[in-house]
Nucleic acid binder design. Structure first.
Lengths: 345, 345
DNA sequence: GTGAAAGCGCTAACAT
DNA sequence: ATGTTAGCGCTTTCAC
């Protein structure tokens, strides 16, 4: 076998601190100190080390470091399918926010039909310092198992009863009540709700707020369709079923469903929005403001939610185990053409 | 200070293999063997270990393992802003595909205005085994630095001249040529192109294909607008500038831009699509098939691209450094209402 | 088949 | 300010 045929090791071993130390004729711990902010090392020595490091391409192995420091600086983000454009946006901001405070993001995408719970063992094995769960639901039991490890968890837009996890969410109920007020004030009386994924707290809260406020106003929900998930298709299908009942206003559990619903009403049912039927969503995704839709909705305070999440993690990771916090951030009602001009009162 | 005031350690230390070994009265290496597929350990012993592990909640520390095995099973995914819905979808599929072969995803989101290059050192420090770069561009120089570490890199939908990285992309040029053929065959003569982000290979290829094929057919591009990025807003703005020139067909660099363009034409310029102007995109995002748009486009073979990427990584990580591969996967032209019914020929 | 010991690359006492 | 030493939790020889 010619020398050329000898398989090369797949990976050139990176330079280690020990090697760097040897070439500089100093001790290995000095290398370590050069990278530690407040370590007793002379500026000149540090410079010498960092210089040589650049020459030889040395970079500290963060993984090895984490073994001793017990700080991986990695947080897990668990997400289910992102059929709702709201979530990619959140993921993006979240990843950037975490990175700004020196945390890296290990992404776990829960395939449809699978549970978040099944991902948690892996997260633990990878020694993530905290977990953020968005657009996905975790069982109370598993949440307790997680918090029992002493690691913080933040749920975005989901709540789990007394499981010791922190939550950050939009005030869904208040937003939904505002929608009820608005639609009733505009003279609508045959009001329908299209639910998102069953048993998600967001859906429960929005439905409760809408229903509850209507009742306070002396009205009953005229119709209620069960959407399957928070997707365009789901909204489209629900709208098709709803149309024959002729409601005069529909509140969809979120914007992407509402957009699907509007398309169904307009292009498949021959109905005009808002003249024949008013449509409202929730989230205020960019699409909601496109001229094709101009969707009345409640804006979720995405930036503030991300901020709160990042801050929450920062605090939790800084000090000793803090008590779980609950952030309920108000949304902002935004009236657009999908309801305007439809006044009947 | 009362005992209660003593700050608790933030984290209950997870049980280690050594502890588990001690409670079982066996050696620590036996624990290790219980988790290694082909290690010499008796079935009964393995069962005993795994059982006890479940009792005590022991789970191997993958990070620690990676120190000795030099395999972190982590791959970095680098993405820029996801204003194009095509990318969240890709990210989702990619994360799932990687997870299926036991690889975890460390997500790096490049903030707008920043370079991918700046993220690479971090990726190296985190000992990722490979990097996938999507919707972002890397300099040839940095690509070489990366590959010099012996770690594979896959670029999705971007190419870098001779930098030793693998690439997976849609045949953008062929797709664009097909669009040219189609539009010309339908009688359009005043053809415009709206470019995406300058200097991205996707944009260069699509423009070259479109222009080149037109020239072969004896036509010149009637107008060419420079879009700023691959976003709805960018498409909208470009369309507004383009409208006064009255082209009879426009090829936008991708779907989300085309959708923005259609909205501008229809809602701001009083033009009908396709009667006054035909619109074509590229990608075939779900939106392209919504009844509000029904956009003619070239479908990117997302699933196949993800598959190719995953396979490429799998191979590269299995054997010794393989030569970089290049996948060019054909797209599929799809005619829809945004161009149909506009025949003039 | 199992145990003992060495070492992965680093940090953190403890020396000097 | 720097060097020495002992681990962090695991895998992997090497004995037996």
């Amino acid at each position: 076998m010619a020398p050329d045929d000898i398989p090369q090791p797949r990976e050139r071993k990176p330079v280690t601190s020990r090697e760097l130390a040897r070439t500089l004729g100093i001790s290995q711990s000095t290398i370590s100190r050069a990278y530690s902010q407040d370590a007793s090392i002379s500026p000149v020595m540090r410079a010498r080390v960092l210089d040589a490091a650049r020459q030889l391409g040395y970079q500290p192995n963060i993984i090895a470091r984490s073994l001793t420091t017990r700080r991986s600086n990695i947080v897990g983000i668990v997400m289910a399918t992102m059929t709702n454009p709201f979530y990619p946006e959140m993921l993006e901001q979240l990843a950037q926010g975490l990175q700004q405070i020196g945390l890296q993001t290990l992404l776990f995408n829960v395939p449809p039909g699978q549970e978040v719970d099944s991902e948690l063992p892996l997260l633990m094995q990878y020694q993530v310092e905290a977990v953020v769960i968005a657009s996905a639901t975790i069982s109370s039991e598993m949440a307790r198992v997680w918090t029992a490890t002493g690691r913080p968890a933040v749920l975005i837009n989901r709540t789990v009863p007394d499981a010791g996890v922190s939550t950050v969410s939009c005030d869904n109920e208040a937003g939904a009540r505002e929608i009820a007020d608005y639609l009733v004030a505009r003279g609508h009386r045959r009001l329908a709700y299209v639910s998102g994924k069953r048993n998600t707290s967001t859906n429960v809260e929005r439905e409760r707020g809408f229903r509850g406020r209507l009742r306070e106003l002396g009205l009953e929900l005229f119709a209620c369709m069960a959407g399957q998930e928070y997707s365009y298709d789901s909204g489209y299908v629900a709208a098709m079923e709803l149309a024959p009942l002729r409601p005069d206003a529909v509140f969809f559990a979120n914007d992407i469903m509402a957009v699907g619903g509007m398309d169904a009403f307009r292009h498949a049912c021959g109905m005009r929005v808002p003249e024949d039927i008013a449509v409202v969503g929730f989230d205020d995704i960019p699409m909601a403001n496109w001229p094709s839709y101009r969707l009345t909705t409640v804006q979720q305070p995405l930036a503030r939610m991300v901020e709160a999440t990042v801050q929450c993690l920062k605090d939790a990771l800084a000090g000793p185990a803090a008590a779980p916090t609950t952030h309920l951030i108000p949304g902002t009602f935004i009236a657009r053409a999908s309801t305007e001009g439809a006044a009947r009162g």
